[in-house]
Amino acid sequence: MTDWALDTPYLLWGLPLMLLPLWRLPLRPAPCSWHALLPVDTASRAVDLSLRLAGAGAILALLLGSAGLHRREYTVERTGYGAHMVLLLDRSRSMDDSFAGRTPTGGEESKSAAAERLLSGFVSSGRNDLVGVAAFSTSPLFVLPLTDNKAAVLAAVHAMKLPGLAQTHVSKGLAMALSYFGDDSSAGSRIVLLVSDGAAEVDPDSELKLRRWFKEKGIRLYWIFLRTAGSHGIFETPDNPEDDNAQARPERYLHLFFSSLGIPYRAYEAEDADALERAIADVDREEQRPLRYAERVPRRDLQAFCYLAAALALAWLVAAKGMEVAR
């Protein structure tokens, strides 16, 4: 019974009113000279009792109904397709440029706008993911915890449209994203989806920490690298060996770092919105694993039942009253 509730419980102060119909019947007392003369009649007793209960029941039902009796919303566990996923979004200033590396003009779309549009579609598709959102620029930003509230996740993805902040400090962002997952790695597949247009060197301290966490928490990592035209790709080996270091090619070294983690990892290089769309579709396909998730069963209003019960009880009273012997 604990899942039943009232909207305005103070109406229950009216419950003592139920005593009134139990005490008096709304019927005219039939005169008789001496009660003891009347035979004990079980049927009459039963009718008498039923009318008293009907009166009390009608009052109870009307009170419960107007107090808004309902069954609370509850959750049931179901199995669907999806994952526990943290979207780690780059909010650095360069995300506001187009894929060509300029301030978007006319019909051009900035990288952040393209990511916002396509991620929105991904989030609102029929998946049953539990999604959290984290963002980073120079510092990590905690945005939303893992939630099944799609409207909330969309609201967080939409916030990407606003101007970016500063630089790309990816290791702090990764640490923040990993902190969303507890140590128990049994609950479904865990994904970090990193969307960024650049990278930065991972300092040795964070490197050790990240290495351990990725392993311990059993994370699957996807990196969608929004490559600006003319910039270095993540799969490219520099022609000049002098450039082959983390300062000159942070993207390539971040990719090498991720590859060396020994976790399931995939990188995509998106040079335009279509490539980004294909990358997101690929993640969607890859991550179709069964996931146990909680589905909300919305609250169920029970007022109608209360009023129906009250109407039946009152109908019985009306019938009895209507059969009263007229004098």
Binding site: R91, V133, A135, S137, L141, F142, V143, L144, P145, T147, N149, A151, A152, A155, A156, H158, A159, L162, P163, L165
Partner: peptide
């Protein structure tokens, strides 16, 4: 500069978030 974390979310369904 402000950084918006998320646009307005309905407060009853989204309270925990």
């Amino acid at each position: 500069e402000p950084a918006l974390l998320f646009e307005p979310i309905e407060t009853c369904a989204g309270f925990s978030a």
